[in-house]
């Protein structure tokens, strides 16, 4: 995970849905409404790097109200379960992990899952994602021993892979090809 890792940057720019818990003046341009405030409970898609910070930034009330419960802190926004973790998708993953077109769903699915997992500690979801990755990795390994080499990356199967899986796929293809070359040299 390097600072200059392009995939990392692109994954961070992925938009995820959130809900504003307070009204913010002047932020209306985020929803094509320049000059107006963003009102409380507006739903907006924000890039992950921004949402991540806003969701954990505490708001300090200007006037110190002694009656206010000190344990209750407000944050700028609340994260909403994004579409790619909806029960529809999760069920599809559980049914047949190999048939999911991850690239269309979200090209950085695993990178986001890693971040999501560390933000929410969602053990159940991560177990499903792990199981899915495992199954797909086996399929990747099976496909990669075919002879067509790097053309495979643009086959129907290759185009359904998430970017992490594509990297893995390329490594597997190269490894099998190298051994084959060595054996026939």
């Amino acid at each position: 995970m390097g600072y200059y890792d392009l995939d990392e940057i692109l994954a961070d720019g992925q938009k995820i849905p959130c809900r504003f818990t307070i009204s913010v003046p002047g932020l209306g341009y985020l929803e094509n409404n320049p000059g107006k405030p963003v009102i409380q409970n507006t739903k907006l898609d924000l890039p992950l790097w921004l949402a991540e910070i806003l969701a954990i930034c505490e708001i300090q009330s200007a006037q110190n109200d002694p009656n206010e419960n000190p344990d209750q802190t407000t944050y700028f926004i609340e994260l909403i379960q994004p579409d790619f973790y909806s029960s529809k998708i999760i069920n599809a993953i559980k049914t047949n992990a190999l048939k999911i077109d991850l690239h269309q769903l979200l090209p950085y699915f695993y990178k986001l899952s890693v971040k999501w997992g560390s933000m929410f500690n969602d053990t159940e979801l991560m177990a499903i994602v792990q199981e899915m990755f495992k199954q797909r990795a086996c399929a990747i390994n099976d496909y990669s021993s075919d002879n067509n080499h790097l053309q495979l990356l643009n086959s129907e199967f290759g185009l359904q892979l998430d970017e992490t899986e594509r990297t893995l796929f390329r490594q597997c293809i190269e490894s099998h090809r190298d051994l084959k070359n060595w054996l026939s040299s």
Binding site: Y110, V114, G117, M126, Q130, F133, L168, C172, S175, L179
Partner: peptide, 26 residues
């Protein structure tokens, strides 16, 4: 040796990714 070598990129890559997906790895 050679058989492990052939599988190494795949195995190491998958295990690394699974480790990252493990909850609690910060």
């Amino acid at each position: 040796l050679m058989e492990i070598n052939e599988l190494r990129p795949m195995v190491v890559g998958v295990m690394d990714q699974l480790r990252k997906l493990q909850v609690g790895t910060n």
